[in-house]
Amino acid sequence: MNVFGEDLLHLVTRAIEWCGILVIVLGIVLATWRYVQRSRSGKAEDHSLRHYRADVGRGILLGLEFLVAADIIATVAIEPTLESLAVLAGIIVIRTFLSLSLEVEITGRWPWKQDPEEVEDRREAR
């Protein structure tokens, strides 16, 4: 690969990483804003903290998707060595575990378990 192409891939990778970081930060800011709005309006209920944590978790999950994409691009397109591939595999395992943990935290169930309401909605749609 020529130097220009490699520099462009580095730039694209960094841009995607920054997007991931921005998504996480914005997710936290928006979740906090929603929590404060609920508290000010008097709609704060017992579940407000749970909703806040779920909103923060969603922001983190989306940001992690961007970060994994950037890692894949960096490993596959820029530096495709066995060592970089092993590092990528480790990163993906850790981030997958984090994603699963956050999903369980947000929804209260495993991602492959369907919500009973979703199942009922599908039955009614048929």
Rank of each mutant, 00 (worst) to 15 (best):
A69V: 15
A69N: 03
A69G: 05
A70Q: 04
D71I: 04
D71G: 15
I72N: 05
I72R: 00
I73T: 10
I73A: 13
A74L: 14
A74H: 13
V76S: 08
A77H: 04
A77N: 06
A77D: 11
A77V: 11
A77K: 12
E79K: 14
P80V: 07
P80Q: 14
P80G: 13
T81I: 05
T81R: 11
L82S: 11
L82H: 11
E83D: 14
E83C: 04
E83P: 00
S84P: 00
L85P: 01
L85I: 11
A86W: 01
A86L: 13
A86K: 04
A86Y: 03
V87Y: 14
V87H: 14
L88N: 01
A89D: 04
A89T: 08
G90A: 14
I91A: 14
I91S: 12
I91Y: 13
I92N: 02
I92L: 14
I92E: 12
V93A: 13
V93R: 02
V93C: 08
I94E: 04
I94F: 11
I94K: 06
R95Q: 05
T96A: 12
T96G: 10
T96V: 11
T96I: 08
F97V: 13
F97M: 11
L98I: 12
L98R: 03
L98H: 04
L98N: 02
S99K: 09
S99I: 09
L100Y: 09
S101W: 09
S101Q: 07
L102K: 02
E103D: 13
E103S: 10
V104T: 03
V104M: 08
E105P: 00
E105H: 08
I106R: 01
T107R: 08
T107F: 13
G108P: 00
G108M: 04
R109L: 07
R109S: 07
W110N: 05
W110T: 06
W110F: 10
P111R: 00
P111N: 00
P111S: 00
W112I: 06
W112Y: 10
W112D: 12
K113M: 09
Q114N: 04
Q114E: 11
Q114G: 10
D115A: 09
